[in-house]
Design a protein around this nucleic acid. Structure first.
Lengths: 183, 183
DNA sequence: GTCTATATTAAGATAGAC
DNA sequence: GTCTATCTTAATATAGAC
């Protein structure tokens, strides 16, 4: 797939400008491709671009995060690995979350199902860690949701106050916090 | 100001569709006013509409939330009042946060400063409660940020999973959680 | 204060040459 | 696979009558 080549650039554009704000003119300039060339690679236009990005992010999460959470190791180490990978994705808080962006705009209806599946898979993987550590199902579910809430909320507040230290603090504290719930 | 009459309808539209998705055609249909009439009330178009909404939300927060946090009473009662008012604003989790929507779209540059001021005033008010209760400044700041993070994150996850119970759980647990940090 | 009609611009999208 | 040129639509915005 030659599409993969353009994913980083497209991800950056959609995160910076949102779905509607990332116009074909901007995409054309950023990728260096004319509009017609963009339609050669992505016949369904922007929807296909975002879909390609979402598939890529889903694979990243499955390979880098969900696999770790489901594998061998201590809960603390798993959550530290998860937070490390999330810091990488969100560039230490400098970048907002594409999922949140898609949920908050006019493209919500188009991409909601896909975003929901990714969120759910992530939370389910965390639930698995908590249940393996002995938490009952309900408590495990709440703790997993709380983790996702902390990440997403930190990203919003970081954007709102223009202060990546908020995201960095939350990410640093999260593994310990999640494991302290285990005792 | 006759503009106030249209705020609920406009707020609903921008929350549902985002800044770009809330087109003048949709606004015209929802308000029952023709496009030209909309420009009579809001000469600067959508920007002025959003600005009017933001001013209204700021006043609501100052009157209903910041005043309570800065007034007399126990911390627990103050936070319970805050969460009650936030549940009202977000309709028990059914509605997303306009601030987050504006931060995540193409209108970020236009409204970021105003959103930042509102966020900062809210957090400062919570910091005041924690400091009055004896927490040192740094810890008070972190706890206040954590409260805002929990609310914003819960709204994102609620949208993503299409499950308002997430917001409701977080809102119900928050006052106790914030006060447990005081002992 | 509201309307109809229209202007203007920019968006997404395509045709067809190279 | 990329381009120039163009099409179509829909967006914001305005003029001017009532």
């Amino acid at each position: 797939m030659s599409k993969a080549k353009y994913i980083p650039c497209l991800l950056s554009l959609f995160r910076q400008h949102g779905y509607d704000g990332a116009t074909l003119a901007k995409i054309s300039e950023a990728t260096g491709l004319g509009k017609a060339s963009l339609y050669h690679h992505f016949p369904n236009g922007k929807d296909e671009m975002v879909n390609t990005i979402l598939n890529s992010l889903q694979v990243f999460m499955e390979d880098q995060i969900l696999a770790t959470l489901a594998g061998e190791g201590e809960p603390l180490a798993k959550f530290e690995r998860m937070c490390d990978r999330l810091s990488y994705v969100y560039e230490n808080g400098d970048q907002p979350c594409l999922f949140a962006i898609l949920l908050m705009g006019s493209a919500r209806d188009t991409f909601h199902d896909q975003v929901k599946r990714i969120f759910q898979a992530w939370i389910d993987a965390m639930v698995g860690v908590f249940q393996n550590a002995g938490l009952d199902q309900e408590l495990a579910k709440r703790r997993a949701e709380d983790a996702a809430i902390a990440i997403q909320g930190a990203l919003i507040l970081t954007q709102g106050l223009n202060d990546p230290r908020i995201f960095q603090r939350v990410i640093n504290e999260l593994p310990q916090k999640l494991c302290s719930a285990l005792f």
